[in-house]
Amino acid sequence: MNKTIAFIFSILLLTLSETSFAQNVAINQENATILHQNGQIYLVVLVLVTIFAGIIFYLIKLERKLNRLEKK
């Protein structure tokens, strides 16, 4: 058991150590700014957050319903 854990851990460390050699892809450092030019993107973020809130609200409702059923 201990051996397997040590094995998995060493593999993990090996993969981590490789990251130090990794180099970022050469990309133009100039930031893309088109998306932010007219500020309308904030509207889209608002819409996305609303949809996400709706989905989470639905999941919480299901959660409550299940809790009630589990108590019975």
Binding site: I27, Q29, N31, A32, L35
Partner: peptide, 22 residues
């Protein structure tokens, strides 16, 4: 975490990628 991903994922200023772009 997902709220962070949705908001920051859209608003973060990313480097310019010629093929993938936004």
């Amino acid at each position: 975490i997902l709220l962070y991903v949705i908001v920051v994922g859209i608003l973060i200023k990313i480097p310019y990628l010629p093929k993938l772009k936004e």
